[in-house]
Design a binder for these strands. Structure first.
Length: 262
DNA sequence: ATGTCCTTGTTACAAGGA
């Protein structure tokens, strides 16, 4: 079973790229973030015409928005507004094999890493706390997978320069503390690191502002795939498809694929 | 460090977010 996650930065502008990706990589389930579209305008038909008949969306105008596109039947889906700010940042599904997939778009957090000066940074930490509390209290019998744009690059090899980014939102010590609390809130395994080890640099996002993004390679690993520990031995492959950053009109994030032996 | 890209509102750009 192949599960992918991709911050698409507008589904409508990149729908052709997404369809090509789904068919070429034979994806079963795709979790999208930053769809930037209300549910009534979501391109359901294009996905259905290509064999993806099961779609769950939680979108809004202009900002945020998440969706799950599936070739396999969905038995249940669930949305939650963790910070009660009417922001569409989460949707989950359950499959017939009783696997539950959580799709998140965590807040970016603004520029200034100071909760007193920057309400967006406060919201980001708050959102992490709310999700942590939720998983701590939750008692589900389903097999769990969590994916999405978490907007935090937790370790040194998740950023191009640990020293230069230590005070930059996405890699600050306080954020990493919240990230660690969340991963400890349940039996989570960071599947990308589990599969690749800790030593190599892995990035999933390169800023649009760096024109020579490939040459400079100033990337960060903001997109994540976590699996419940009991699923970790079922991981057959993990891919971070850097080539998608090279195509014309790219998203600033590339897709990640988890291949599970299920 | 703020060079780009995307959306919206209003009608060729500016604002806001990332």
């Amino acid at each position: 079973m192949k599960i992918a996650t991709w911050n698409i930065n507008s589904i409508r502008i990149r729908i052709d790229q997404v369809i090509r990706f789904l068919l070429k990589e034979k994806i079963d389930i795709l979790c999208l973030q930053e769809t930037k579209v209300t549910d009534n305008l979501f391109p359901f038909k294009t996905f259905k015409d290509n064999g993806y008949n099961f779609i769950k969306v939680n979108g809004q105008k202009q900002y945020n928005g998440v969706a799950i596109i599936s070739r396999l039947p969905i038995t249940r889906s669930y949305k939650k507004d963790f910070c009660e700010k009417k922001e569409k940042r989460y949707i989950s599904i359950t499959l017939e094999n009783n696997i539950e997939i959580h799709n998140f778009y965590f807040p970016a957090g603004g520029i200034e890493p100071d909760i007193k000066k920057n309400p967006k940074f406060e919201e980001k930490l708050n959102f992490y706390s709310k999700v942590t509390d939720w998983f701590t209290k939750r008692n589900s019998k389903k097999k769990q997978i969590l994916v999405g744009d978490m907007n935090i690059a937790p370790s040194e090899n998740d950023v191009w320069s640990h020293e230069k980014l230590i005070n930059i939102v996405s890699h600050t010590p306080i954020e990493i503390k919240y990230f660690d609390k969340l991963i400890k809130s349940f039996d989570w395994v960071d599947a990308v690191r589990y599969f690749n080890g800790d030593k190599k640099k892995i990035f999933s996002w390169w800023s649009y502002r760096v024109i020579e993004w490939k040459l400079e390679n100033k990337g960060r690993r903001l997109d994540h795939i976590w699996v419940e520990k009991s699923l970790s031995k079922k991981i057959q492959n993990i891919q971070v498809l850097k080539k998608f950053r090279n195509y014309s009109q790219p998203s600033d994030h590339v897709p990640l694929i988890l291949d599970l032996d299920i």
